[in-house]
């Protein structure tokens, strides 16, 4: 086997592992990272996205890309209702929110089981595959890596350059002052939670073809999602999530390839513990410091 093929395969694996971590964390980046709601129903929101996409694709015959967009809006609307009815009473009470969202996840998981039964028919993975030097690569995963990158850019743009983004950042930093300055904070909260839920639904729909569509499928994403967001930190949630999914994938991929999935998983968990210990504010804070130092040097 040629070295270049192995290198290419490792790069591809690194990309998919990072994209998997990033997509798992996508909705939680907003809900935990920005709003500080420890959302244990995150996996169930992803599950709902997968179900919405499956139903739209299989029962209504929508093409898959359209089904993904439908599931974004479906879960976003559900998220808005959830925020209005329940979640809004729990801002600033992170740990109560944890219990409430746990309760919601139980209802959603078992409720889906009772309504839709144990499994949904799967969605076929779109696209084919390329092969090179004995390794092959799935087109769909390459597309997912691309989508992850454009989502990062889109989110960054939304928060940096739109008036909603400005209001949201202001509200999350200090709701009282934002309110005094005329920001409709309640609406911002609802919109932000709904966006987070919608993004969770979107990534659930995107990952649906690679996964078993089942009521408890969300559980598989919970641990990677939380680890990615926490390792990323809250200073800048987007750069943090990108940084942590890249870093964790860079640790997991080679160890997994050389020593197998068990040690790959262990390496990921240990790395998370060590990173949080070294950088208690997450990767984003460290990145911020480096940037600040650079900027300071430039201005000097």
């Amino acid at each position: 086997m040629e070295i270049d093929a192995l290198a290419l395969s490792l790069t591809y694996q690194f990309g998919t592992n990072a994209a998997f971590l990033f997509l798992s964390a996508l909705g939680l980046i907003v809900i935990l990272g920005m709003m500080n709601i420890i959302n244990l129903a995150h996996g169930e929101l992803m599950m709902m996205g997968a179900y919405a996409a499956t139903i739209a694709n299989n029962q209504f015959g929508l093409p898959f890309p359209l089904a993904v967009i439908v599931s974004f809006f479906a879960v976003a609307i559900f998220g808005a209702i959830l925020e209005l009815l329940i979640v809004r009473r729990f801002y600033g009470r992170e740990l109560s929110a944890l219990v409430v969202t746990w309760g919601i996840s139980l209802i959603l998981g078992q409720g889906t089981f009772l309504v839709f039964g144990p499994f949904m028919p799967a969605i076929k993975i779109p696209g084919g595959s390329y092969s090179y030097g004995g390794f092959s690569f799935s087109e769909y995963w390459l597309v997912l890596i691309g989508i992850s990158i454009s989502l990062v850019i889109g989110l960054y743009w939304l928060y940096r350059y739109t008036s909603y983004g400005l209001q949201a950042r202001a509200t999350m930093q200090n709701a009282e002052i934002a309110k005094a300055l005329g920001v409709p904070t309640n609406r911002v909260y609802t919109l932000t939670f709904s966006l987070g839920a919608g993004l969770a639904g979107l990534s659930g729909a995107l990952l649906a073809p690679t996964s078993t569509i089942a009521p408890f499928m969300g559980q598989q994403f919970v641990a990677p999602a939380f680890i990615t967001v926490v390792v990323g930190g809250a200073t800048n949630v987007i750069s943090g999530a990108v940084g942590s999914s890249v870093l964790l994938s860079a640790i997991k991929t080679p160890i997994g390839m050389a020593y197998g999935a068990f040690l790959g998983t262990v390496a990921l968990l240990v790395a998370a513990l060590v990173i949080i210990r070294i950088m208690p504010d997450g990767i984003s804070a460290t990145l911020q410091k480096i940037m600040d130092r650079r900027r300071a040097r430039h201005t000097l």
Partner: peptide, 17 residues
């Protein structure tokens, strides 16, 4: 593979290798 793993990219590459 641990029971919690659901992303098999690396395992698939190992099979191919």
């Amino acid at each position: 593979v641990p029971l919690s793993v659901s992303d098999f990219t690396t395992s698939i590459a190992k099979v191919q290798a």
